[in-house]
Amino acid sequence: MNHYPQAWGRPRNDVYGPYDHSYTHSAMPKTHTQSPAVTGTSVLGVKFKDGVVIAADNLASYGSLARFTDVKRIRTFAPNTVIGFGGDVSDMQYLDRLLQTLEINENYLSSSEHSLNARNLHTYLSKVMYKRRSDFNPLWNMMLIAGFDEDEKPFLASADLLGTTFSSPTLATGFGAHLAQPLLRRLMPNDEESVKDVTKEQAVDAVRACMKVLFYRDARSMDKYSIAVITKDGVDLKEDEKLENQSWAFADQIRGYGTQVN
């Protein structure tokens, strides 16, 4: 023992050699938060004349491994906003806690029910996402925010890991942006003007059809999914839906994959 308290309890330099500080201080900053680990795939959203439909499957993949098969990627924000998450699941859980805190604080500060609508939440989330990407520590998610705006019109918009926002009568994240979005757009030949002609049933059917297409063609997807229908009456969230009437007949026609060479 010597009289330098900072050396007490440490391996002695004269016995073990000088302490290697590189164990505790790496030369480079942390980078593992800049890429996703456990991920969810596409989220779909469609407006209709008096609300919005939103859907996402219940799978969380670890790379290409279908790791968790019962993950709810759609969460509600009372009274009638719904948020669907694609991308990193742990970041989704962080955002979920953030929104939970926000909801509690808002209700605590208001003598009646809080007044945050879907548009307000979308603005808030996009600022959170942009702040985090500017810190080089992005939340690795693509989100759809669905609900109603201040004029009680159906609202649907996306926010992603860069803080980019986009709004359209039909939206899809991830693989869905390529596979489902073109199909969903058939519902809306005149973009926003078409919304008033689309019924709830049409919108739900289109979303269910797209979930099926995505299951056929997206290798990170699953046949169990959640779907939420948002109307003025509230949110009808079903979290344990199965894809019905699958037909793999088309699979015969596909050539050039796996063991099948031509």
Binding site: S110, R119, L121, T123
Partner: peptide
């Protein structure tokens, strides 16, 4: 207004 795009409630 900046973070929520909402005019602040008066009571708040």
């Amino acid at each position: 207004k900046l973070s929520y795009g909402r005019p602040i409630p008066v009571e708040r």
